[in-house]
Nucleic acid binder design. Structure first.
Length: 422
RNA sequence: GGUGGGGUGGCCGAGCGGCUAAAGGCAGCAGACUGUAAAUCUGCCCUCCUCAGGAGUACGUAGGUUCGAAUCCUACCCCCACCA
């Protein structure tokens, strides 16, 4: 424990810290906050580019959670404004602009997740969730240039990682993208003014943007604020985490069922378990040290805990228990299958020559009939635990098992129950 | 504005009149092996058709030449470099 504040020590111990602008200063501010002074207010911005956040964002949310646990005040800033421009930092080419309607819809979906991880309210350390559209939409061009633009030099902006990368790769950067960093920096300044926010956090890819904000606050108002980044969520093999058969690992239940979410964590690489437990759960560090030392098949216990804890946080205790139980039922003994994701098949469908390949698509286990057919040919599909050999066979009422369901599985890890409502 | 180079499947990247639904790599999926892990091996990897086969789309966009085009021609759009 080389630092004084619980906050900084926690971040280091749990692997959240990658870079910080002034760690000593931050440590002092956090300590003051923990000892009853004005709370350390910190924020992370979330763009509204998709209808759900994914596991990459989970890390950021956990960071806000740590801040709140240590007596700070977290701000989950919704990027309703910045999304209209689009963050180019991790992109190699410009992405299409989203319509305002799409942004609003995405924001509504994204906003739901935070209450699982943070306590909201009016209190001293309660989280808040403003939208930067509130101020960015009002900004006038001339004011922007005079008040903000004069604090930025092109010399410096050109040195930023993403700008260099694009220039080296001979890829274009539009003026629009080039301005994103000004908007984000301005957010920090605005949050500092409105909420006395003095810390911006983010993934390591945000370093450039964050530093710009810190400097703007200093230049424009002589405010001492801090920036820190954490490592991106990578697997031990150096891959970005967060992809599954169905796409990204989404946080919204409608886009990824709690069962599949649980499964994702249950199946992580051995080498990643300890690190993930530290970063994504509140499990005590001593416990994690014990678990990650487990050898051979025993390390599965650590993975189960990881799956349990992460699912509990996101979807609640009941959903986590149901997912764990369904997994036990599907892969071992005991357990209750009720936690499996369900997709309805109507009774009418079962009599009209409804092919297995079509059912696989409808139930969400295959994206096209062609894929479904291939899966069957490769022996990857089973119904009620029995491998299907012919995808062109029709589904009939005989498929319904004793529990009144049809259990579909694709590969070894994806199982779905289809009900036939009567 | 001028000159030259370029736009190929999720990504990278070959192809440069038929043998090309398009080499190779990465990512992904399934199977084997295991511990619902990793590594490895095998197969798959545009869509549709009750399918040992067939059809339809596809190589920036729109036309054209040809028995036949991702490959040739024309126009247009976009990108890059150099010059102005």
């Amino acid at each position: 424990m080389t630092h004084k504040s619980e906050f900084v020590n926690t971040l280091i111990a749990r692997g959240h810290l990658y870079q910080a602008t002034d760690l000593e200063g931050l440590d002092a501010a956090a300590l003051a906050s923990e000892r009853g002074g004005p709370p350390l207010v910190g924020y992370i911005g979330f763009d509204c580019t998709a209808p759900s956040l994914h596991v990459g964002h989970l890390l950021q949310i956990m960071l806000l959670r740590r801040l709140q646990q240590c007596g700070g005040k977290p701000i989950a800033l919704m990027g309703g404004g910045t999304t209209r421009v689009g963050d180019p930092s991790d992109k190699n080419e410009a992405r299409p602009l989203l319509t305002l309607d799409t942004i609003a819809a995405n924001k509504a979906e994204i906003a739901k997740v935070f209450s699982r991880f943070l306590t909201f309210g009016q209190g001293r350390c309660d989280a808040i969730q403003p939208d930067n559209a509130d101020w960015l939409a009002e900004v006038r061009w001339l004011d922007m240039l005079r008040d903000i633009g004069r604090h930025f030099t092109i010399n410096k902006m050109v040195g930023l990682e993403f700008v260099k990368r694009r220039l080296d790769a001979e890829q274009p950067i539009t003026f629009l993208e080039f301005n994103y960093m000004l908007l984000q920096a301005y957010d920090f300044l605005e949050l500092a003014r409105r909420y006395d926010c003095s810390l911006q956090m983010g993934g390591s890819d945000q370093w450039g943007n964050i530093v710009q904000g810190v400097e703007l606050c200093r230049r424009a108002e002589d405010r001492a604020v801090f920036g820190l980044t954490q490592p991106l969520l990578m697997s031990a093999s150096g891959q970005k985490m967060g992809k599954t058969a169905g796409g990204a690992v989404w946080l919204n239940a409608e886009m990824l069922s709690p069962f599949d979410y649980w499964q994702y964590w249950r199946n992580v690489d051995d080498a990643d378990v300890g690190r993930l437990l530290r970063v994504l759960t509140d499990t005590p560090l001593e416990e994690i040290v014990r678990l990650e030392a487990l050898q051979g098949a025993e390390i599965n216990d650590a993975k189960k805990l990881l799956a349990d804890e992460t699912t509990k946080l996101l979807h609640g205790e009941a959903a986590a228990a149901a997912a764990a139980s369904a997994a036990a039922a599907s892969f071992g003994a005991g357990g209750d299958i009720a936690g499996l994701p369900r997709f309805p098949i109507s009774p009418a469908q079962l009599t009209g020559g409804y092919l297995i390949t079509a059912a696989l698509v409808d139930v969400g286990l295959a994206v096209s009939k062609s894929e479904a057919k291939r899966l069957v040919e490769q022996g990857g599909v089973s119904v009620n635990g029995r491998v299907v050999r012919n995808g062109l066979e029709p589904v009939t009422p005989a498929f319904i098992n004793a529990d009144g369901e049809i259990l579909w599985s694709r590969g070894k890890k994806r199982v779905i129950q289809a009900l036939s409502p009567t």
